[in-house]
């Protein structure tokens, strides 16, 4: 399973490196969304940084949706899923591989957005660095959940519009937990309970993904 996961993750990342969609499309979108979120609040509130954790995670949410959509798009070329299934790869490994690639991509975008928050929303650099572990785990959960929900929408009618509807309610508790843990890292406060929620969600989604991914990918 681990070997399959590694192969699939490398395949997805290689496609991303060659197509540069992440670099030229998703990254500018992420930065633009952060700037627009700041503009929506107005210069005084956006610069006060107390709303920074919420804005950060709201933008992360939309970026995660775009990346999940992109990850499914890779598989949507005619014949791709059929040829992957004929290889006889372990579905659990395929799931882990796709989730891993997605996590790495979201980590890069998360780091860029965190740097953007320091620049545009006046978040303290030390606080942002302290928040890195909690942001990394939350993005990991979003990737694993996104991989499952992405598989649910593949091949049906209107997957582009269906994915947000399916995914956003699942991301809602992560948005709250992520925002609270980021606030705690930046301004102090209880951190462990939000960590528990995020870690439990990560374990649950990984277990569910390994168990059901094969069922979802059967055509």
């Amino acid at each position: 399973m681990i070997r399959t996961a590694w192969l699939v993750a490398r395949k997805d990342l290689r496609i991303e490196m060659r197509s540069r969609v992440l670099l030229w499309q998703v990254t500018p979108f992420a930065v633009l969304a952060l700037v627009l979120a700041g503009l929506a609040l107005g210069p005084t509130k956006a610069g006060s940084s107390s709303s920074a954790p919420g804005l950060f995670y709201l933008v992360v949410l939309f970026v995660a949706l775009a990346v999940v959509q992109r990850s499914r798009g890779i598989e949507s070329t005619p014949g791709t899923r059929a040829s992957v299934s004929t290889l006889g790869l372990d579905p659990g490994g395929v799931f882990l591989g796709k989730a891993l690639a997605l996590t790495l991509e979201l980590w890069v975008l998360g780091a860029i957005l965190l740097a953007g928050s320091v620049l545009f929303l006046h978040v303290a650099l030390v606080g942002a660095l302290k928040a890195l572990p909690s942001v990394a785990v939350t993005l990991g959960v979003m990737s694993t959940a996104g991989t499952i929900y992405g598989a649910l929408t593949t091949g049906g009618d209107g997957p582009v519009t269906l994915l947000p509807l399916l995914t956003l309610p699942a991301f809602a508790p992560l948005l709250v937990a992520g925002e609270r843990s980021l606030s705690a890292a930046l301004y102090g406060g209880a951190l462990w309970e939000w960590w528990v929620i995020v870690v439990v969600a990560l374990v649950a989604y990984v277990a569910v993904g390994i168990a059901v991914y094969g069922v979802l990918e059967e055509s």
């Binding site: 649910l152 929408t153 091949g155 049906g156 009618d157 209107g158 997957p159 269906l162 509807l165 399916l166 956003l168 309610p169 699942a170 809602a172």
Partner: peptide, 16 residues
């Protein structure tokens, strides 16, 4: 949120 999930379930059924 559960209500939204349920609406999403109905949308998922219509999509396939």
């Amino acid at each position: 949120i559960l209500g939204v999930f349920e609406v999403a379930y109905l949308a998922l059924r219509r999509a396939n």
